[in-house]
Amino acid sequence: MERVGGDVVVLEKPAADTPHLRVREDRGYTVLEFRGEIDIVAATEITPHLDDATGGPAPRIVIDLSRIEFFDCSGLRLLYRARGRVLDQGGHLHLVCTHRLTLRILRATGLYRLLPPATTLDAALEQPEATSGTL
C-alpha cells in the first residue's frame, strides 16, 4: 500500500508471466524460466520478478535457460544477482542450461563452477543441495 495525497492506493504485484519469463512452482522450488532473447530489455523486465522470488528466507530457486535464444552480459548479471541474493538468504539455487553459446559464456566467466548447470529441469531438481552454488 502507498498513500497518495491522503488516499490509500493498493499496489498490485506484477504478473509472474512476461514475454521473457515464466514463474511457477515445482517440487518445492520456484522455477524462473527465461525465454527468448535475454538482453538488457529482458533483464529490466525480469529483475523485479527475480528479486521477488529470491527475497524471502531460504529461497529454493531454479533458473531454467532451456528456452532462451540469446544470452548476453545482462543475463549473466541476472544469474550473479540471483546467486548472491539466494546465498545471502541461506537458500539454494540450481541452473538448467543446454544452450551451447551460453554454456561457453558460463565457462569463460567462471560461473559454470559456481553454478553448475543441469541439462534438464528434472536433473536440476534431483541435485543434492550441496551442489546448488552454496559452497
Rank of each mutant, 00 (worst) to 15 (best):
V10W: 13
V10S: 15
E12L: 07
E12Q: 09
K13R: 15
K13E: 14
P14K: 12
P14Q: 13
A15I: 06
A16E: 11
L21H: 00
L21I: 04
L21P: 00
R22D: 04
V23P: 01
V23Q: 09
R24C: 06
R24Q: 07
R24V: 05
R24M: 06
E25A: 09
D26R: 09
D26N: 07
D26K: 06
G28R: 11
G28E: 12
Y29D: 02
T30W: 03
V31A: 02
L32I: 08
E33I: 07
F34V: 04
R35P: 00
R35S: 03
G36P: 01
G36Q: 07
E37W: 05
D39K: 06
I40A: 11
I40W: 07
I40S: 11
V41S: 14
A43W: 00
T44M: 12
T44F: 12
T44P: 05
T44E: 14
E45F: 08
P48G: 11
P48H: 11
P48Y: 09
H49P: 01
D51S: 08
D51G: 05
D51A: 09
D51M: 13
D52E: 14
A53C: 10
T54Q: 01
G55K: 08
G55L: 07
G55I: 06
G56P: 07
G56K: 13
P59I: 04
R60N: 06
I61V: 15
V62D: 00
I63R: 00
I63Q: 00
D64Q: 03
D64C: 04
L65T: 01
L65C: 05
R67D: 10
R67Q: 12
I68W: 01
I68K: 01
E69F: 10
E69A: 09
F70T: 13
F71W: 04
D72H: 15
C73H: 10
G75D: 04
G75Y: 02
L76K: 05
R77H: 11
R77S: 12
R77C: 09
R77Q: 12
A82R: 01
A82I: 06
R83W: 08
R83T: 01
G84Y: 09
V86C: 04
D88L: 11
D88E: 15
D88T: 05
Q89E: 10
Q89P: 05
G91T: 02
H92N: 15
H92K: 08
L93T: 00
C97Y: 00
T98C: 13
L101I: 11
T102S: 14
L103W: 06
R104H: 13
R104V: 10
I105P: 01
L106D: 00
R107F: 03
A108T: 12
Y112A: 06
R113T: 08
R113D: 12
